[in-house]
Amino acid sequence: MILKFNKSKSNQDIELKVKSRLPDIIFKNVTLIFAFIIIFLVLWIIYELYKDAEPSRDRFGWSFIFNEEWEPLKEKYGALTFIYGTVVSSIIALLISLPVSLGVAIFLSEIAHRYIKTTFSFLIEILAAIPSIIYGFWGIFVFATFMRNTVQPFLQSTLGFLPFFKGTNYGYGMLTAGIILAIMITPIITAISRDMLKAIPQSQREAAYALGATRWEAIKMALLNAKSGILGAVVLGLGRAIGETMAVTMVIGNRAQIKASILEPAYTMASVIANEFAEASGSLHISALIEVGLILFIVTFVINSFARLLIFSATRKYDVK
């Protein structure tokens, strides 16, 4: 028996004895080296961020995270306002995007006709592929104006008594950034939730119909069964929102402040790096910006790992891709 083959594992079990195995060994190891480049690259990125942030880490310690002050002239740096801006804008994005994305995912997996489904999936792919700079540019010239002239005056006149909607109406701010972010993360949440819904066996819905359930009740069953996968999709969307740079930088107003009002301008971690890095004054400033990057990296890393774990275990449960 010269050919040993086991389908349940992977292809690695094919063993063939030929005259010279040297080229095979070389080829295998060359591809192995390239695979190791990926491992090496991720570790190198972590090391580089950690090392370059050292002056700032030494100087400020943990207070870097809890300090609001960011004053390059006084050489005082604290990232709290940026962390606040990132967290709040991302949460706004998630709150807006979640119901819509779920709706679209249900529409695509349960309701739409085949041809509509293909067209719609394509449009959503395009929505995901539009560069973030274009969202930002459109945000500045079209969407922020719309927010300033229509949406925000309306919010202030109806809900203005709440602290979240007080303050000056610039058009640029947390809410505008949150909505643009929501548009940008909807495709990814939709796509993964749709796959998760599709992975729920059709027989479960049929069982629900057989018991007299309406279509929505059957869908609700499927949603409940897919919930961990959908949670994964949502967390992945959150990770995207947190790391998004250009579009947010262009519409959030870039003012380092912590205000209760979501109409006020704010500043995010990614935005401060984008705005100040190239013109940073001195090495401590650069180092502080890199530490902001390090925090951003750690946060997105943890969030994405969690999301992938949820999605991974959800797909394995139903063994359908």
């Binding site: 990926i38 991720v42 961020l49 947190i242 790391g243 740079t245 990057g293 990296f297 790992s305």
Partner: peptide, 19 residues
């Protein structure tokens, strides 16, 4: 790790290459 790389905000890659 490819998932990690996809999820890293692109601006972080900028910082890395800067370094």
């Amino acid at each position: 790790l490819t998932d990690v790389l996809t999820g890293i905000p692109s601006i972080i890659i900028g910082i890395f290459v800067y370094g």
